[in-house]
Amino acid sequence: MHTVLVVIHAASGTIGLLLALPVLLAPKRRGRHTLLGRVYAGATVGLSLSAFGLFAYDPAHLWGLAVLGALTLGWLVGGLWFARRRPRGFGPRGWRIWHLNLMGSTVIAFVTGFAVQMSGGHLAAWLTPTVLGSLLIARTTAREVARAPRRVAVATTS
């Protein structure tokens, strides 16, 4: 069973890493973005669930994997919820900003996992993707906020 979990984890991680950039760069409308996004979401679920299974085999050493898996799954669920529900209480484009931040966080998790694996668990591999990814998300969020229509206050006279 351990080997099956490792294969699922590696395959899901590979698919997620390969699809992250195309999903991020695809025009944000129905079609390519949603199709690639669904496959990416499936890879994210596979990665997270296999992380929990692998954690069960060696909790003392793989606790970081379980934490990253839980966070990633939470970010995915939140990102999908905002994309499907598009709640209006967050402003005209607020749902997009939440979706972008949450799904961007899943990409950071994929890159972090890959970096940690390739570096043998070096601390920089845990921190660098988060710092760089957060800066990219912040820049993209600022652009999205700037594109949002401005509410104009109308002054009334008595």
Rank of each mutant, 00 (worst) to 15 (best):
1 M>L: 06
1 M>H: 09
2 H>L: 12
2 H>M: 12
3 T>I: 14
4 V>Y: 09
5 L>D: 04
5 L>V: 14
6 V>E: 09
7 V>N: 00
7 V>I: 15
9 H>L: 08
9 H>E: 00
11 A>H: 00
11 A>G: 06
11 A>E: 01
12 S>E: 04
12 S>F: 07
12 S>I: 13
14 T>V: 15
16 G>K: 00
16 G>E: 03
17 L>P: 03
18 L>C: 13
22 P>F: 01
24 L>E: 03
25 L>R: 12
25 L>A: 15
28 K>V: 09
28 K>Q: 08
28 K>P: 07
29 R>V: 14
29 R>A: 15
29 R>N: 07
31 G>Y: 07
33 H>E: 08
37 G>R: 12
37 G>I: 04
39 V>I: 15
41 A>L: 10
41 A>P: 01
43 A>R: 00
46 G>Y: 05
48 S>N: 02
48 S>G: 12
50 S>E: 00
51 A>M: 03
52 F>H: 10
53 G>T: 14
54 L>Q: 09
55 F>Y: 15
55 F>D: 01
56 A>H: 11
56 A>C: 02
56 A>E: 08
57 Y>G: 01
57 Y>Q: 14
58 D>Q: 11
60 A>V: 13
60 A>K: 11
61 H>K: 11
62 L>R: 15
62 L>K: 06
64 G>I: 00
65 L>S: 08
66 A>I: 04
67 V>F: 08
68 L>K: 07
69 G>S: 12
69 G>N: 02
69 G>V: 05
71 L>I: 15
71 L>P: 00
71 L>G: 10
73 L>Y: 07
74 G>F: 01
76 L>A: 08
82 F>N: 00
84 R>F: 10
85 R>D: 02
85 R>G: 05
90 F>R: 13
93 R>Q: 11
93 R>N: 10
94 G>S: 09
94 G>Y: 00
97 I>D: 06
98 W>K: 13
100 L>I: 01
101 N>A: 15
102 L>N: 02
102 L>P: 02
102 L>H: 03
102 L>C: 12
102 L>T: 07
103 M>N: 09
103 M>W: 04
104 G>V: 03
105 S>D: 02
106 T>K: 06
109 A>K: 00
110 F>G: 00
113 G>C: 04
113 G>N: 02
113 G>E: 02
115 A>K: 04
115 A>V: 06
120 G>E: 06
120 G>Y: 03
120 G>F: 05
121 G>Q: 05
124 A>L: 14
124 A>E: 07
126 W>Y: 13
126 W>S: 12
126 W>N: 13
127 L>C: 12
128 T>N: 02
128 T>Y: 07
129 P>H: 09
132 L>K: 05
133 G>R: 06
135 L>H: 06
135 L>K: 09
135 L>G: 05
135 L>C: 11
137 I>V: 15
138 A>H: 01
139 R>Y: 05
142 A>E: 04
143 R>Q: 10
143 R>N: 11
146 A>R: 14
147 R>F: 05
148 A>G: 09
151 R>S: 13
152 V>G: 05
152 V>M: 10
153 A>T: 15
154 V>F: 09
154 V>N: 04
154 V>K: 14
156 T>A: 14
157 T>S: 14
158 S>G: 11
